[in-house]
Computed example of a mutant assay.
Amino acid sequence: MESVDGRVILFIIVGGVLFLLGRRVQLMAMMWQSWKDAVKAVPARRKVAFGSVRHVLKLALVAALVLWAVVHVGRFM
């Protein structure tokens, strides 16, 4: 009888180990997919970031022109 009990315990242990291994593989696959999606999103985010920088530079140029105009209008009046 003991050999049968030992086999049952062994099957339970092997089943638990296979379950945990499967969960690890599933987690690894999900992380790999997330990493691939993040790498694909980099060019789009870079484009948006450079667009924002250009917009800020344009606003700074307009602000500088307005400041220059205010300073020079004060001199002429």
Rank of each mutant, 00 (worst) to 15 (best):
A69H: 08
G6C: 10
A29Y: 08
V25P: 01
G6H: 05
H55M: 04
V25T: 05
V66N: 06
R54P: 00
V70W: 05
K40Y: 11
V62R: 00
L10T: 04
S34F: 00
V8T: 04
V73C: 08
G74R: 14
L10D: 08
M28S: 11
K36S: 10
F50V: 03
F11R: 03
H55P: 00
A44W: 01
V56I: 06
L10V: 04
R54H: 09
D5Q: 05
G51C: 07
L57A: 03
F19Q: 10
F50Y: 14
G15C: 03
A49F: 07
V39E: 09
L21R: 12
R54K: 05
A64D: 12
L27R: 13
L27K: 13
P43T: 10
A38S: 05
H55Y: 02
K58C: 05
D5P: 01
R7M: 07
W68Q: 07
M30N: 13
V73D: 07
M31A: 11
V17P: 01
F11Y: 10
A29F: 11
H72I: 15
V56N: 03
G6N: 13
L27T: 14
V17C: 07
F11A: 06
S34G: 02
G22H: 08
F50T: 08
R45K: 12
R24W: 13
V25I: 15
L57K: 06
W32Y: 09
M77V: 15
A69T: 14
A69G: 12
R7V: 06
H55A: 10
M31Q: 15
W35Y: 11
A38H: 01
E2T: 05
A49P: 00
A41L: 02
S3N: 08
L18S: 13
W32C: 10
V42Q: 09
G22I: 09
H72Q: 07
M28N: 14
K36W: 06
I9Q: 02
G15Y: 00
L67V: 10
L59H: 04
L67F: 11
M1A: 06
L59I: 06
A41I: 03
G6Y: 13
A60D: 03
L65S: 08
I9F: 05
W32K: 14
A44E: 08
K36Q: 14
V56A: 09
Q26S: 10
A64K: 09
V39G: 00
F19S: 11
V56H: 00
A64L: 08
V71E: 11
L59G: 01
L57V: 07
V56C: 01
V70R: 04
W68P: 00
L65H: 02
L27M: 12
A29R: 12
A41H: 02
F19G: 11
